[in-house]
Amino acid sequence: NTKMVRFKKGDSVGLRLAGGNDVGIFVAGIQEGTSAEQEGLQEGDQILKVNTQDFRGLVREDAVLYLLEIPKGEMVTILAQSRADVYRDILACGR
């Protein structure tokens, strides 16, 4: 149940992230009207890879910085997997 989305970065990627470290990086929110939303990313999706950067094992701050450093107008390719069950557990633990 993995999906790959590809879009051109606007002012931002339009994602709020949660998790990090051993639990993985998850989409915690999506800005309305962004390409990330239009391409089908959803809250609870685990981000496995962005462009050439493996997101598994990253701390959340490093994942956020990586997304911020992608220049506006560059193509962004995100490999994600729907993991809403794991995401709910992360929220319940306050991570």
Results as ranks from 00 to 15, higher is better:
9 K>G: 06
31 Q>R: 10
77 T>P: 02
52 T>P: 02
62 D>N: 00
16 R>H: 11
72 K>Q: 11
9 K>Y: 03
50 V>A: 03
51 N>Q: 05
91 L>T: 13
56 R>K: 08
22 D>P: 09
25 I>C: 08
64 V>R: 11
80 A>E: 06
60 R>E: 12
19 G>S: 04
70 I>M: 00
24 G>R: 02
15 L>N: 14
45 D>Y: 03
66 Y>N: 08
4 M>H: 08
41 L>I: 08
13 V>R: 05
1 N>K: 10
5 V>A: 03
88 R>C: 09
5 V>G: 02
68 L>R: 15
16 R>K: 13
56 R>S: 10
40 G>R: 01
11 D>T: 07
67 L>E: 04
4 M>I: 15
12 S>R: 10
8 K>C: 10
33 G>H: 07
75 M>T: 13
64 V>Y: 15
18 A>F: 12
58 L>Y: 06
14 G>I: 01
17 L>T: 00
32 E>W: 02
20 G>N: 13
89 D>N: 14
79 L>W: 14
14 G>Y: 04
83 R>M: 09
86 V>I: 11
93 C>N: 15
76 V>S: 01
62 D>T: 09
66 Y>K: 08
44 G>I: 05
20 G>T: 10
36 A>S: 07
81 Q>R: 14
55 F>C: 02
6 R>I: 09
20 G>S: 11
83 R>H: 09
23 V>S: 10
82 S>G: 08
34 T>D: 10
87 Y>F: 11
88 R>K: 14
81 Q>V: 13
30 I>T: 09
4 M>G: 00
77 T>K: 02
27 V>L: 04
74 E>H: 09
8 K>P: 07
28 A>K: 07
12 S>W: 03
79 L>F: 14
60 R>C: 12
24 G>S: 02
3 K>Q: 00
14 G>M: 08
65 L>E: 15
28 A>N: 01
75 M>D: 12
77 T>L: 03
22 D>E: 12
79 L>G: 03
18 A>Q: 09
52 T>W: 02
10 G>M: 04
49 K>Y: 07
89 D>T: 11
4 M>R: 09
76 V>R: 03
4 M>Y: 11
46 Q>S: 07
17 L>M: 07
6 R>T: 11
32 E>Q: 12
26 F>K: 07
12 S>K: 12
53 Q>G: 01
78 I>F: 00
93 C>S: 14
86 V>G: 08
46 Q>F: 01
10 G>A: 08
84 A>D: 10
89 D>P: 09
5 V>M: 01
